[in-house]
Simulated scan of single mutants.
Amino acid sequence: MRIGELAAEAGVSVRSLRYYEEQALLTSERSESGQRLYQPADLQRVRLIQQLYAAGLPSKTLRELMPCIEAPVQRYATQLLERLTEERDRIGAQITQLSHTRDRLDAVINSVDSTEAAPTP
């Protein structure tokens, strides 16, 4: 399948597919005329990459995780679970920090609102 076909099937841009190749997340073969050619299984790989990106994982982490995901489960199951747990915990810490920041902003907003609402002596 050509790059445009894979992009359309996966719902991503051709530019994204080229980026995935640059990041060593996806590989293609080349036709005699130099066009990128992909295997049918690459559609599922691109969808998985999209899911992991949507979960907030950076390219570097995806490169680390892909061999674990693609290898037989018994070989990398522990490593994969540990890495995914680390990423989940990292995201959880970010959520906690963002919640604290939001709460502080709410306090400032409420303080400004109450100041503006108070009558002037």
Score class of each variant (00 low, 15 high):
Pro119Gln: 01
Leu84Lys: 05
Leu57Val: 01
Thr96Leu: 14
Asp42Trp: 09
Arg83Val: 02
Leu62Ala: 03
Leu80Trp: 09
Asp42Phe: 11
Gly34Tyr: 11
Ala107Leu: 14
Leu48Met: 15
Ser114Leu: 13
Pro72Trp: 09
His100Ala: 00
Arg18Phe: 07
Leu65Gly: 03
Tyr38Arg: 03
Leu62Pro: 05
Leu84Val: 12
Gly92Ser: 11
Thr78Met: 09
Gly11Ala: 02
Arg75Lys: 15
Ser33Met: 02
His100Lys: 01
Glu29Ile: 02
Gly56Gln: 08
Arg75Met: 11
Pro121Gly: 09
Arg88Met: 07
Leu84Cys: 13
Ala54Cys: 10
Gln44Ile: 02
Pro40Ser: 04
Ile109Phe: 10
Val73Pro: 11
Cys68Arg: 07
Gly92Tyr: 08
Pro40Asp: 11
Ala8Thr: 13
Arg18Ala: 03
Pro58Gln: 04
Lys60Trp: 11
Leu17His: 14
Thr85Arg: 11
Asp89Glu: 12
Glu32Ile: 00
Ala54Arg: 14
Pro40Arg: 01
Met66Phe: 11
Tyr53Asp: 06
Leu37Gln: 15
Arg90Thr: 10
Pro40Ile: 07
Pro40Val: 03
Thr85Leu: 08
Glu5Met: 09
Ile95Gln: 09
Thr101Cys: 02
Tyr20Gly: 05
Ala10Leu: 01
Gln51Pro: 00
Ser31Cys: 05
Ser59Thr: 14
Glu64Ser: 06
Ile3His: 07
Asp42His: 15
Tyr76Asn: 08
Thr78Tyr: 10
Gln74Leu: 05
Ala93Gln: 15
Tyr76Arg: 04
Tyr53Asn: 10
Gln74Met: 02
Ala118Glu: 15
Leu65Arg: 05
Ala55Val: 01
Lys60Gln: 15
Gln94Val: 03
Ala10Ser: 09
Leu105Phe: 10
Gln50Asp: 10
Ala117Thr: 08
Ala107Asn: 13
Leu37Asp: 05
Gln39Trp: 09
Arg2Asn: 13
Val12Ala: 00
Glu86Trp: 02
Glu32Phe: 00
Glu116Lys: 14
Thr101Asp: 09
Glu116Leu: 15
Ile91Asn: 02
